[in-house]
């Protein structure tokens, strides 16, 4: 029995199917994605990373950070909050309606959530009842899920978020926490740098390896001025006591460390999109792609 040609054709055909369905069709669908204009702010999303953050991505890649850290937020079905923005002129009637909508709710206050429901239609109807009574009410979409409750992101991650990631390092395991929005989650560049230098100075019992090769340890006499760009020790004063002798050691981040932290600061996909509705985030204090102000390379 010689089915050589048949096997050859079949093998070719099955692979061609998978190749077409899993590579060609997705490429046609989302391969040509472009930045979109956000309705809320009028800005384009996503914005390309600044040069320093782009260099930091290369440090992230070279050291294989993605082996332990994922960069994707999972989400469950959203719920809807009926939010009372203003009581209006007829406060008594509004309060009455609010109590009818949610028996457990106390006295309605402006800016308070009256009710949470998984059904958009119900939330809309409730908001309409309040609006008809003269109050100002709005329905706010709230994405759910453990990742979002942990504060790892505002909404589900979608293709649009990764348009400028090259290479794309989504990660497949969470040996460490997800980093999708680390830029918004942690206090600042100093925190990140200390954490990279030795995570156990910041978090007791952290399992993250130290990345001390990203820092120079510069000894100096105690009365000499600190080295240029040395990290501020007040943040870790408790866990990093100064030695008693004449010399102290300054911890100076290398250019790689500064770039890596700039990259981490640039991670914050929170813009509401059509495919991933979310509440409009508060405007950032400074553009996220910029170098953290505290760092002087």
């Amino acid at each position: 029995m010689n089915f050589g040609p048949l096997i050859f054709l079949g093998v070719f055909f099955t692979m061609a199917c998978s190749w077409f369905g899993m590579i060609v069709v997705p490429q046609l669908q989302i391969g040509g994605q472009q930045p979109v204009k956000l309705e809320a702010t009028g800005q384009m999303y996503p914005l390309p990373r600044a040069g320093l953050a782009q260099q930091g991505a290369a440090v992230y890649r070279a050291n294989g950070c993605a082996a332990c850290h994922s960069q994707q937020v999972r989400q469950g079905p959203p719920v809807f909050d009926v939010k009372l923005n203003d009581l209006g002129t007829n406060a008594a009637q509004v309060a009455d309606i609010a109590r009818k909508i949610n028996h457990a709710a106390g006295a309605p206050l402006p800016g308070k959530n009256i009710w949470r429901t998984p059904v958009k239609k119900d939330a809309d109807a409730a908001a309409k009842r309040l609006t008809d009574a003269g109050a100002k009410a709005a329905v706010v979409i709230v994405p759910t899920g453990a990742d979002i409750e942990r504060g790892w992101g505002a909404r589900v991650s979608v293709a649009q978020d990764y348009l400028y990631d090259q290479p794309l390092m989504l990660g497949s395991r969470r040996i460490g926490p997800d980093l999708a929005n680390i830029g918004a989650r942690k206090p600042g560049a100093d925190w990140q740098l200390w954490h990279l230098y030795n995570p156990r100075l910041i978090t007791d019992g952290s399992f993250m390896p130290a990345y001390r090769f990203l820092f120079n340890e510069v000894p100096r006499r105690k009365d000499a001025p600190p080295a240029l760009g040395a990290l501020d020790k007040t943040l870790v004063a408790k866990t990093f006591p100064e030695p008693a002798g004449e010399t102290v050691t300054d911890i100076v981040p290398t250019a790689e460390a500064v770039a890596l932290v700039a990259y981490l600061a640039s991670l914050n996909p929170d813009a509401p999109l059509f495919e991933a509705p979310a509440p409009v985030p508060p405007p950032p204090a400074a553009p996220a792609t910029n170098t953290p102000a505290a760092v002087k390379p």
Binding site: Q27, G31, Y162, D165, Q166, L170
Partner: peptide, 8 residues
């Protein structure tokens, strides 16, 4: 390729 296509 761009973006998420790399992951795919």
């Amino acid at each position: 390729v761009r973006g998420v296509m790399q992951a795919i």
